[in-house]
């Protein structure tokens, strides 16, 4: 099963490679990973999407906790939480598809952040399903390039699942 794990870590040199090394060294897979500073600049938050059975996920969270620089590990999948991801999609539609691209962007509450002679760049934010849906719909219109941020997640206020 898929799990979204959120970590608070010391914002120090080498921390990312300790975490990445843990996953590669023990054969766990990382589907996505994102890192950023928190309000406290000495602490970073990482969101890792990984998968495995219960025993593997238990090992992953324990192993992460064991790393000296990791302050806190939360398996978001066990909590009611909000997940978001952002994608930038550069589409090069044929003349007759241009209107459709813009219409799709609007339906998905996307924004055109850049447009040129031949391409539009559309920004969409949402959960995984939404991102995948718009990618599917835009594919026939000619996607030239596309970049995803990886997932970030935050727990909802005070309710446990």
């Amino acid at each position: 099963m898929r799990h979204t794990i959120s970590l608070l870590v010391e914002n120090k040199f080498g921390v990312l490679s300790r975490i990445a090394g843990l996953f590669s060294g023990r054969g766990y897979n990382i589907e996505s990973l994102s890192v950023g500073e928190t309000i406290d600049p000495q602490i970073s938050v990482m969101t890792i999407v990984t998968s495995g059975d219960d025993q593997i996920i238990e090992q992953i969270t324990k192993q992460l906790n064991k790393l000296i620089d990791v302050i806190k590990v939360v398996d978001m999948t066990e909590l009611d939480h909000v997940e978001r991801e952002m994608v930038l999609i550069k589409v090069a539609p044929r003349q007759e598809d241009k209107a459709e691209v813009l219409r799709l962007a609007e339906i998905f509450r996307g924004r055109v952040v850049d447009s040129g002679q031949k391409t539009y760049t559309i920004e969409v934010t949402g959960d995984e399903k939404k991102i995948e849906a718009i990618v599917e719909l835009l594919k026939p219109m000619g996607i030239k390039e596309f970049v995803r941020t990886g997932k970030i997640a935050i727990a909802r206020e005070g309710i446990k699942k």
Partner: peptide
């Protein structure tokens, strides 16, 4: 050596 020894130390420092 910090990179090389990372997986076989409890912790390491530069």
């Amino acid at each position: 050596i910090v990179g090389i020894s990372r997986p076989c130390t409890k912790y390491n420092y530069l």
